[in-house]
C-alpha cells in the first residue's frame, strides 16, 4: 500500500440480455433505473447523481458497513443514442485515487430480439491499492488480457 506505481490494462466483458437495445439503454441512461442495478445491493449506503448527456457527470459514493468509502466519478464523453456511449471515470477509496479509466459500452441487437452488450475498459491502476480478495482470481484473465494487449501493441508496431 505504500509506493507509487502505475499498471495499465484493458479488458472486455460481453453479455447478452433478453431485452431490446432500447430497454437496455434506458437502464443506463435513467438515473433511477441505473441506481437499481449499479448501486450497492447490500447494507452499504449510496449517494448517486447521473446526468446522462455528453459532458454530463455521474457520481456515486458508497459507504460500506466497515467504514470504507468508495467513490465512482464519471464524465460522459460520447453518446450515440441507443448504440454506444463512452465515459471516463475515476475511482477513489476514501481519499486515495485508485484508478482512472475509459469505459466504452456498445449495444447491438441480436437476431432473437435481445441485446449484446460489449464493455471495454482501458485503465490505469494506481499505487498498488489492490485487495487480497481480488488476488484470488486466477492469472488466466491477466494472461488473456496481456496477450490481447501484446497483440495490439504488435499490430500497432
Amino acid at each position: 500500500m505504500s509506493g507509487r506505481s502505475t499498471n495499465h490494462a484493458t479488458f472486455v466483458i460481453e453479455r447478452t440480455y433478453d431485452a431490446a437495445p432500447a430497454r437496455v439503454w434506458r437502464a443506463w441512461a435513467d438515473p433511477a433505473e441505473k441506481l437499481r442495478w449499479f448501486g450497492p445491493q447490500g447494507p452499504a449506503k449510496a449517494e448517486h447523481e447521473l446526468e446522462f448527456r455528453v459532458g454530463g457527470l455521474e457520481r456515486m459514493t458508497v459507504q460500506t458497513p466497515n467504514g470504507a468509502r468508495y467513490t465512482f466519478a464519471a464524465r460522459y464523453q460520447d453518446i450515440v443514442e441507443g448504440e454506444r456511449f463512452i465515459h471516463t471515470y475515476e475511482m477513489h477509496l476514501d481519499d486515495a485515487r485508485i484508478s482512472v479509466s475509459v469505459a466504452t459500452v456498445e449495444l447491438e441487437a441480436t437476431a432473437g430480439g435481445g441485446t449484446k452488450l460489449t464493455m471495454t475498459e482501458q485503465g490505469v491502476f494506481l499505487d498498488d491499492l489492490d485487495t487480497p480478495a481480488a488476488r484470488e482470481h486466477g492469472t488466466g484473465e491477466l494472461l488473456d488480457t496481456l496477450a490481447a494487449h501484446l497483440q495490439d501493441a504488435g499490430d500497432r508496431g
Partner: peptide
Amino acid sequence: ALRAAEGWIAERRTAWEESLDRLGEYL
C-alpha cells in the same frame, strides 16, 4: 507487479461482471 496488475484487472473486471449480471436480473 504481476500481483498488482492481476489484482486491479481482476477486481475491476469482477465488479463490472457483477454489475452487468445484476443489470440482466433487473431487466
